[in-house]
């Protein structure tokens, strides 16, 4: 197995084009497990952890451009104010050691339906920035990035450069259930983001469908029914209906981590609670 370690972004893109059989490494918390278990033996590893451009984040208008190599630990310490949903999710990732290595870009690259970063990115309306040596960069909504279980829109000669996440205009929440209280892969998870500026609500569901996905009917319902102007208390019935619609948007399976029925049930409960907390926070802020 070849080990390719570019020092610059252009070198990384050139190597990617040259070696489409190289597996990108952006922290290694997924990839190295697969190698250790002998599930994957790529012809080469393309280690992106030494590319400085990927390690930075910056404001780009009203969005954070988050370099694909920024680890969860830095999302937590540096971006909890601007990207609260992603920060809550980052806190649920693995252990402190894993959060120091693991990156949002790596999470997107694996495109697992259980990736913790995905639901808050969906709820926030983020875009993924992809780049290739031949065609330059393109940006696409994160919802279009996931194409199947562990499959994404990333082309063979492309690398994930960054993710562009709108700075939160309102409260955001993320909830994740697992069978123990730390270091656990999501049995299922949900993110909710309030966008009071445009009177909209974003959602993201994890581990309950072939890909991370939104719950458009739930978003639409509460966007229309919430009292954006008066910000009166959230109606319990509306919160419950939001939960049901989130659950209905999922397509979970029975597996060793949990049953489909439990996943639906948990999504309904978590979505109801998350919306309630977010709305209460918005009212308090007013």
């Amino acid at each position: 197995m070849d080990f390719l370690q570019p020092a610059t972004w252009s070198e990384a893109l050139a190597l990617r084009a040259e070696r489409p059989d190289a597996l990108p490494l952006a922290g290694g918390t997924d990839v190295m497990v697969d190698l250790t278990f002998d599930r994957r033996r790529p012809a080469a590893l393309l280690d992106l952890t030494r590319v400085p451009d990927l390690q930075e984040w910056a404001l780009e208008g009203d969005r954070v451009r988050l370099g694909a190599g920024v680890p969860y630990a830095r999302v937590l310490t540096e971006l909890a104010g601007r990207l609260p949903g992603l920060a809550i999710a980052a806190r649920t990732v693995g252990s402190p050691q894993i959060r120091t290595r693991g990156t949002v870009g790596g999470n997107l690259g694996s495109a697992s339906p259980a990736g913790d970063a995905h639901p808050p990115l969906l709820a926030a309306g983020a875009e993924v920035e992809l780049a290739s040596a031949a065609r330059g960069t393109r940006r696409l909504p994160v919802a279009d990035f996931f194409t199947g279980p562990k499959r994404s829109a990333l082309a063979a000669d492309e690398l994930i450069a960054a993710v562009l996440v709108p700075v939160a205009a309102g409260p955001q929440q993320f909830c994740k259930v697992g069978t123990r209280n730390a270091m656990v892969i999501a049995v299922t998870s949900v993110a909710v983001a309030l966008h009071p500026d445009r009177r909209a609500v974003g959602t993201g569901i994890g581990s309950a469908a072939p890909t991370p996905r939104r719950a458009p009917k739930a978003e639409q319902l509460v966007a229309e029914e919430l009292d954006w102007a008066g910000r009166t208390a959230l109606d319990d019935g509306l919160a419950a209906e939001f939960g049901h619609r989130v659950a209905a948007a999922a397509a979970p399976i029975d597996d060793v981590r949990g049953s489909a029925a439990y996943r639906r049930h948990a999504l309904a409960v978590m979505a109801r609670r998350a919306l309630t907390w977010a709305w209460d926070d918005l009212r308090r802020a007013a």
Binding site: F174, K176, V177, A182, M270, R273
Partner: peptide, 16 residues
């Protein structure tokens, strides 16, 4: 949050 069921999974603020 670490003292709650679900811990940093952020699933309850005491509800349930």
């Amino acid at each position: 949050p670490r003292a709650r069921p679900g811990a940093v999974g952020n699933t309850t603020r005491g509800e349930g």
